[in-house]
């Protein structure tokens, strides 16, 4: 399946292991990635806060570039998904507004057409369940992650608000990460923080609020017996992994639980090695997860 692939800024910046693991796992999933290397930042909610017309134009540009490939768009970042869905909702809601936004794209020869039916912008998580399918995913598993206890961490932007994230059509989207974990043979761990906020958006403005959130969710996952977390959002990953040593101070306890990117977990079950998936590039070491996986391979 060919997809217009939007990796986002963070996967090519501070979480290069996400970009690399997606590239490694794509052939295993029969995904042909046509990377949108001319596309711009989604704004991550910040440009929307600054100027709505600007953020709608920037994302209409990305959609237009994706539509020009003739394929649907796929992203690997909950934040991109949410920020772009917000713009798409406005663009699709009002033809005059859409024309006005399109007028900014004209000099570049681009145009965003209202998405009908089959053109969609989907996070990898949604693609796995809705387009690849859990049954096909199960068939592809060569190393079932049996015994691995994984705590799902969705990221706000992919679960709220349901009204603009396609929940009318797909009401189970806020359970997909649990479904995928189970399909790969691992155990999905239920914990309080799975659908809460990692705190990343206010890390520079309200550090206590931010790292108390990250720290509590990590602690809840540990207390629920998880070996690791998994997230479809690299911004959540930054607050939960990169900031984890700092977060310990805000919840006054030791943490030390690895946080995997979604394609890393999928890749492990599909037979890729931890190193190919960049699992050595985490702040919180993933060796316990790697050891468990190595034992599985031996068994």
């Amino acid at each position: 399946m060919k997809v217009a692939y939007w990796p986002g800024c963070v996967s090519r910046g501070f979480t290069p292991e996400l970009h690399g693991s997606m590239a490694a796992v794509a052939p295993k999933l029969d995904l042909e990635l046509v990377e949108l290397d001319r596309a711009n930042c989604c704004g991550a909610g910040v440009i929307a806060e600054h100027n709505q017309e600007l953020v709608d134009t920037l994302n209409a540009r990305t959609f237009a570039l994706a539509q020009a490939t003739g394929a649907s768009m796929m992203n690997i970042c909950s934040t991109c998904q949410g920020a772009q869905s917000e713009c798409q909702q406005r663009l699709d809601a009002d033809p005059d507004y859409r024309e006005m936004i399109n007028s900014h794209l004209e000099p570049e020869g681009l145009r965003y057409e209202r998405a009908r039916g089959d053109w969609k912008n989907k996070n990898l998580l949604w693609m796995l369940v809705e387009d690849i399918g859990l049954d096909r995913l199960r068939e592809k598993v060569v190393r079932p992650l049996e015994g691995l206890r994984v705590a799902p961490f969705y990221g706000c932007y992919i679960v709220r608000p349901t009204g603009r994230l396609g929940y009318d059509e797909f009401p189970q989207r806020d359970f997909y990460l649990d479904f995928v974990i189970e399909a790969l043979g691992a155990t999905a761990v239920e914990f309080a923080g799975s659908h809460k906020c990692c705190g990343f958006p206010v890390i520079t403005m309200a550090k206590t609020t931010s790292l108390r959130q990250a720290g509590r969710h990590l602690a809840d996952a540990i207390d629920a017996g998880a070996d690791c977390l998994v997230t479809p959002c690299p911004l959540c990953h930054l607050n939960l992994d990169l900031q984890q040593p700092d977060a310990e101070k805000f919840v006054e306890r030791e943490l030390g639980i690895p946080v995997l990117h979604l394609p890393q977990m999928v890749g492990l079950a599909l037979g890729l090695e931890p190193k190919e998936l960049g699992m050595d590039k985490h702040v919180v070491k993933t060796r316990d997860v790697q050891r468990k996986v190595a034992e599985l391979a031996a068994a």
């Binding site: 706000c156 709220r160 906020c197 958006p201 206010v202 403005m205 309200a206």
Partner: peptide, 15 residues
């Protein structure tokens, strides 16, 4: 410090 820049943009209130 607990004002408009303490909102973590989680959409829970909108939902």
């Amino acid at each position: 410090p607990h004002g408009i820049y303490d909102c973590t943009h989680c959409f829970a209130c909108i939902e």
